[in-house]
C-alpha cells in the first residue's frame, strides 16, 4: 500500500489557453516520475520551466490538461477535499493574513480543520516557539521583518503535521543569510517530522542543501535529470553544480553522463 505522501506523476501535460482565443501556452510538455513517501525532493529549473505550475497542480489549484498526478493514489485536484489536513504549502511571499496576529495566522489551518480552540492555541504556540517567535505571537505581520514573516508561514505549514510539504521559491526573496537560515530550518524540520517535502527553487545551493533528490526541469516542463544525491557519480558539489548548469543552459539532458 502506498503511503499518504507518495506521489505518482504520469504523462502530465499542462497547456494554458487564453479565454479570448490567442495562442496557447505550453507550461508542462510532459512529466513522468515518482516520489516515495518521506523523500526530500528539490525541483530546479529556470523561469518558465513549469515548476510553479507543477506545484499548483500538486496543491490542487490547477488541473492537468493530460495525464495525472496522484498523491497516495488520489488526485489532489479531483479529490480536493480528501487532502484536508494532509498537505501544506509555503509560498514565495509569506501570504499571511494581515489582519491576524502571528499566533492567529498559525492557528488558521487548525481552525479550518475544526480543532478545539485550546488545542489550536497550544499547537500554534508550540510551533511559533520552535521557530523562535514566542515573543512575537501578538505582533501583526506588518510589524515583523520579512524573515520573521516567512517563519510564521513555515509554522503555519508545519502546525497541521502534513504528510506532504511543498515550498515554492519560499526563501529566494530574502537576503542571503536569512534565506540560508530559513532553508536549514525548513530542511531540518521536514526531515525530523518525516514529511515528504518538495522544494521548488531556481537556486542550485538550495537544491543541493535538500540533500535528497534533485529533479532538473527543462523548458517547457520536461524532466532533464532525476538526480539521487546518494548515487550520482560526482563526489564534489562543484562537479554536481556544473552538471546541472550545463543541462539548464542547453535545455537538454547530459549527452555523456558523468562516469
Amino acid at each position: 500500500m502506498k503511503g499518504a505522501g507518495a506521489i505518482d506523476v504520469a504523462g502530465l501535460r499542462k497547456v494554458f489557453r487564453h479565454t479570448g482565443g490567442g495562442e496557447a501556452v505550453v507550461a508542462i510538455e510532459r512529466l513522468d516520475f515518482t516520489i516515495r513517501q518521506g523523500d526530500m525532493v528539490a525541483i530546479v529549473g529556470q523561469t518558465g520551466c513549469g515548476k510553479s505550475t507543477f506545484l499548483n497542480i500538486l496543491i490542487g489549484l490547477e488541473r492537468p490538461t493530460e495525464g495525472r498526478v496522484a498523491i497516495g493514489g488520489r488526485t489532489p485536484y479531483g479529490d480536493f477535499d480528501h487532502f484536508r489536513g494532509t498537505l501544506a504549502a509555503v509560498f514565495q511571499q509569506d501570504r499571511l493574513l494581515p489582519w491576524r496576529t502571528a499566533l492567529d495566522n498559525v492557528r488558521l489551518p487548525l481552525e479550518l480543520l475544526g480543532r478545539a480552540p485550546d488545542e489550536q492555541a497550544r499547537r500554534a504556540r508550540a510551533w511559533l516557539d520552535r521557530l523562535g517567535l514566542a515573543r512575537f505571537e501578538r505582533a501583526y505581520p506588518h510589524e515583523l521583518s520579512g524573515g520573521m514573516r516567512q517563519r510564521v508561514a513555515l509554522a503555519r505549514a508545519f502546525v497541521i503535521e502534513p504528510a506532504l510539504l511543498l515550498a515554492d521559491e519560499a526563501f529566494g526573496h530574502l537576503d542571503e543569510v536569512t534565506s540560508a537560515a530559513l532553508r536549514t530550518t525548513f530542511i531540518d524540520l521536514a526531515r525530523t517530522e518525516g514529511h515528504t517535502a518538495i522544494l521548488v527553487t531556481h537556486q542550485l545551493e538550495e537544491a543541493i542543501d535538500m540533500g535528497g533528490r534533485i529533479l532538473v526541469f527543462g523548458r517547457p516542463g520536461a524532466l532533464l535529470a532525476d538526480i539521487d544525491l546518494h548515487s550520482w557519480p560526482r563526489t564534489s558539489v562543484a562537479g554536481l553544480r556544473g552538471d546541472i548548469q550545463r543541462m539548464l543552459q542547453s535545455n537538454a539532458p547530459l549527452k555523456e553522463p558523468p562516469a
Binding site: N56, I59, G60, L61, F80, D81, F83, R84, G85, L87, A88, A89, F91, Q93, R95, L97, W99, L108, P109, E111, L112, L113, I160
Partner: peptide, 27 residues
C-alpha cells in the same frame, strides 16, 4: 488571488473561505 490560493491549499469549506478570508478582507 495569492491569499485565496494560500487558504484553498488548506481545503476550507465555502463558508470558511468567506468568513476567514473574504469578509475580513472587505472590512
Amino acid at each position: 488571488k495569492d491569499l485565496r490560493d494560500m487558504l484553498r491549499s488548506f481545503r476550507p469549506t465555502r463558508v470558511q473561505l468567506f468568513t476567514k478570508l473574504v469578509l475580513p478582507a472587505t472590512v
